Amino acid sequence: MTSVNWTGVFPAVTTKLKADFSLDIPAIGAGLERLIQAGVGGVVMMGMVGENAQLSPAEKLTVLRTAVELVKGRVPVISGLAETNTASAVTFAREAEKIGVNGLMVFPGLTYKSDTAETVQFYKAVAKASALPILLYNNPRGYGVDLTADVIAELLEAPTIVAIKEESYETHRITGLLSRFGDRLNVVCGVDNLIVESAALGVKCWVSGMANAVPKASVDLLNLLIAGDFAKARKLYTALDPLYYLDTLVKLVQHIKLAENMTSGTSEAVKPPRQPLAGAERENTVAITRQTLADLRALGY
């Protein structure tokens, strides 16, 4: 099985859909191939603030099978795990392991704001369900559950919990986590327009939404940051930052799919209740994407 070293850009891959909202398997495969050719370090299928919750159980497993079959071990395939109860989460973890994914990005139990004891029990139950390495997902703004350093210390009693996608928007936490847990915990950037700050503090892995639209530039940006070439990185980041900001908005899926449509021709289709962007909101994203592409061309892309 392909191991996960938690280095590089791991796009939170958009789920490609047909006009009738069914899975577009060829488009999913083509999108993955495009990302791999751009040099990504791994792929994350079905991120939770994406369309994970809108997919049926069968569709989720189909997405994973498609990814594993297409990627063929060239990069790690990570699956989002987003369920409303512990039993369903345990079942999904076991099924994902059977399919052959290389790791799980695990969200707290959905629709319920668990307290610390409940949160720890939930994650440990998922960790026991398979041998897959687990990337914790910390997004207290989105889910109301905050994986603080003290909570993480309890979670790390489970040996397969090895990383955290830090999306609290509090970059000072990175230093605290790295200094407290060292090599025991891989800290991963989870906010597109905080990648420069995160990398400056030592982060080497980034789960990115807008990398779907601009994968090569995103890979180059992180490589420059890891190499310590902040002068070149800032020039590239200046071009990318307006586009990355769209990944922080409520309609990030629509923004990413529209930008991805403009860069690779994939469908903008999103599952209801989401609707494609329209009016001034759409025009703004189109303008930002066009300007970003023009700025990237000026830099040689």
Score class of each variant (00 low, 15 high):
L221A: 02
A199P: 14
L222R: 03
D229H: 09
L177F: 13
V219I: 05
G182V: 07
A227P: 04
E170M: 11
D229W: 07
C205K: 02
I195T: 14
I161K: 02
Y169H: 09
A153I: 01
E157R: 08
I195Q: 13
S168Q: 00
Y244H: 13
I152C: 10
F181T: 05
A200V: 05
A227F: 07
E157M: 03
G202E: 02
L246F: 12
R180G: 02
W206Y: 10
T171Y: 14
V162I: 11
T248L: 06
G190T: 08
A227G: 06
K235N: 13
K165I: 09
Y237H: 15
A158Q: 03
V203W: 08
T248K: 02
T175C: 11
N223I: 00
A231S: 08
N193I: 00
V203S: 04
N223Y: 00
A163E: 01
Y244G: 07
A163T: 00
V219T: 04
K235E: 15
P215F: 09
P159Y: 08
N223C: 05
I161L: 08
G228Y: 06
A153P: 00
V214I: 15
S208K: 08
A217T: 03
V207P: 01
K204N: 10
A153W: 01
A200D: 06
R234Y: 15
L246Q: 15
F181Y: 06
L224Q: 10
L240Y: 13
K204H: 11
D183K: 11
A233T: 02
W206I: 04
T160V: 07
E197C: 03
A158P: 05
P215D: 09
Y169I: 01
L246A: 11
G176D: 07
E170P: 00
L185W: 02
A227V: 03
L194A: 13
N212M: 04
P159V: 10
T160E: 11
E154T: 00
N193C: 03
A158E: 07
K165F: 13
V214E: 14
D220Y: 01
V187Y: 03
E170D: 15
T238N: 14
E167D: 15
A217I: 06
C189H: 12
E197V: 01
E170S: 09
S218W: 04
G209N: 12
R180A: 13
K232F: 02
A213N: 13
E167I: 07
R180W: 08
T248I: 04
N212W: 08
A239M: 12
A233K: 07
S198I: 10
S179V: 09
V207R: 06
G176R: 09
K204I: 04
S208A: 14
D220E: 14
S168R: 00
A163Q: 00
E154I: 02
Y244W: 15
P159D: 12
C189D: 15
V203C: 10
L194V: 11
D192C: 09
A211D: 07
I226Q: 01
V207D: 03
G228M: 06
P215C: 10
E166P: 05
L194Q: 15
S208I: 04
A158S: 13
K204L: 05
K216Q: 12
Y245P: 00
I152W: 06
M210T: 12
L201C: 10
G190S: 09
F181H: 03
Y245S: 10
T248Y: 05
I164M: 10
P159F: 13
A211C: 12
